[in-house]
C-alpha cells in the first residue's frame, strides 16, 4: 500500500484528500486488476476442486449435467462401513498424537541448546536437523522403510509413528529455535542468580514462556502428520493405515466401488483437516512462520 501512496509524489501529497484518491488508484491500475484476477482464478479453481468432491459425495447420479439428479447420504454410510473408517480415524489420531508428543519431547530440548549456545560442530548438527525437512519424504522414506522392515518395526503402527517422526522432530526444532532465541536470556540469568537449578529454570521460567511456541509447532506437526502420505504409505500395514493412505488406496483401486464412496471419504478427510486447520489458525499466523512481519511500519 505504501507504493501507491508514494507513487503520486509531491503532487498528491499527504493532504486530507489523499485517502479517497488512494482507493481510486488501487481500483484503476491494470496491475491490480491482473493480480486480483489471478487470485480470483486460483480461488475459483480451488472452489471447483473442493466443491465438486463435496457435491459428488452427496449426489445420487451425476453424469452429464451441472448438478446431480438427487441427493442422498447413503455414500457416507457405505464408506463408513466398507472402509472401516472408525478404526482408520482412531489409528490416524493415535499416530498423530504420538508423533506430536514424541517430537516435542525430542525436539524442544535440542532447539533450546541450538538457540542459546555456541559449540563446536554446531553447523553440522544444524545441517543434520535441516536435511530431513529439505529432502522429500520419498527419497529417505524408501531406505527408512527398508531398515524398519529389517527390524520388524514396519507394517504396524509403531513403524508409522517412527517414520513420521523423522521430518517432525526437525520441524519442531526449526520452528522452536527462533522462538527460543527471542526470549530474553536475562530472565533465565536472573532465575539462576536467585538460586534456581536447571530443572526449575525449565519448569518455572522456560515452560510457561515456551508454551505458545510449543502449542503452535505441535499443531503444525499434527496437521502435517495427518496429511503425510508418502512415509505412512511406505511403512503402514493393513491395520495401520491412516486416513490419507486409506483414501489413496480406495482411489487407486477404483472401479470396484462407486466413485461417490471415495468422494465421501475424501470429504471426511477434508473435514478432519479443516477442523485441525481452524484450530491451528487460532494459534498460528501463516505469514509469520518464516520471519516476523513488521506490521507497525507498513502503513
Amino acid at each position: 500500500m505504501s507504493t501507491t501512496l508514494t507513487r503520486g509524489g509531491p503532487a498528491t501529497g499527504r493532504t486530507p484528500g489523499a485517502e479517497p484518491s488512494r482507493r481510486r488508484r488501487v481500483v484503476a491500475t491494470p496491475g491490480a486488476w491482473l493480480v486480483w484476477g489471478a487470485v480470483g482464478i486460483f480461488l475459483v479453481t480451488l472452489l471447483g476442486v473442493v466443491g465438486s468432491v463435496l457435491v459428488n459425495s452427496f449426489g445420487t447420479q451425476w453424469f452429464d449435467s451441472w448438478m446431480p439428479n438427487g441427493y442422498t447420504l447413503q455414500w457416507y454410510s457405505e464408506a463408513w462401513s466398507e472402509y472401516g473408517l472408525l478404526a482408520v480415524i482412531i489409528t490416524t489420531l493415535e499416530v498423530a498424537v504420538a508423533v506430536v508428543a514424541l517430537s516435542v519431547i525430542l525436539g524442544v530440548p535440542a532447539s533450546y541448546v541450538l538457540a542459546r549456545q555456541k559449540f563446536p560442530g554446531k553447523k553440522i548438527v544444524y545441517l543434520l536437523f535441516l536435511l530431513p525437512i529439505m529432502m522429500p519424504p520419498i527419497t529417505y522414506g524408501i531406505p527408512l522403510a527398508t531398515v524398519l522392515y529389517k527390524f520388524h518395526l514396519a507394517g504396524n503402527i509403531s513403524g508409522v509413528i517412527l517414520a513420521n517422526l523423522v521430518p517432525c522432530v526437525p520441524f519442531v526444532i526449526m520452528t522452536m529455535t527462533p522462538f527460543i532465541e527471542q526470549i530474553d536470556p536475562s530472565i533465565e540469568h536472573a532465575a539462576r542468580m536467585s538460586g534456581a537449578r536447571t530443572w526449575s529454570v525449565f519448569t518455572r521460567i522456560l515452560a510457561p514462556l515456551l508454551l505458545p511456541g510449543i502449542l503452535a509447532s505441535s499443531i503444525l506437526v499434527l496437521v502435517r502428520t495427518v496429511g503425510m502420505f508418502e512415509l505412512t504409505f511406505l511403512t503402514a500395514g493393513p491395520d495401520s493405515n491412516t486416513l490419507v493412505v486409506a483414501l489413496f488406496n480406495s482411489m487407486n483401486a477404483a472401479g470396484i466401488r462407486a466413485q461417490q464412496t471415495v468422494d465421501s471419504m475424501a470429504v471426511i478427510y477434508m473435514s478432519v483437516m479443516m477442523i485441525l486447520l481452524v484450530v491451528a489458525l487460532r494459534f498460528v499466523n501463516p505469514t509469520q512462520l518464516v520471519s516476523q512481519v513488521k506490521e507497525e511500519q507498513t502503513d
Binding site: 476442486v49 473442493v50 468422494d263 475424501a266 477434508m270 483437516m273 485441525l276 501463516p286
Partner: peptide, 20 residues
C-alpha cells in the same frame, strides 16, 4: 484460504481435479 490447499494434500487435490 490459501493455506487450505496445503493442508488438503495431493491425494484430495487429485480427487477434486478428476471431478472438476
Amino acid at each position: 484460504v490459501l493455506v487450505i490447499p496445503i493442508t488438503l494434500g495431493t491425494v484430495l487435490t487429485a480427487e477434486g481435479l478428476l471431478n472438476f
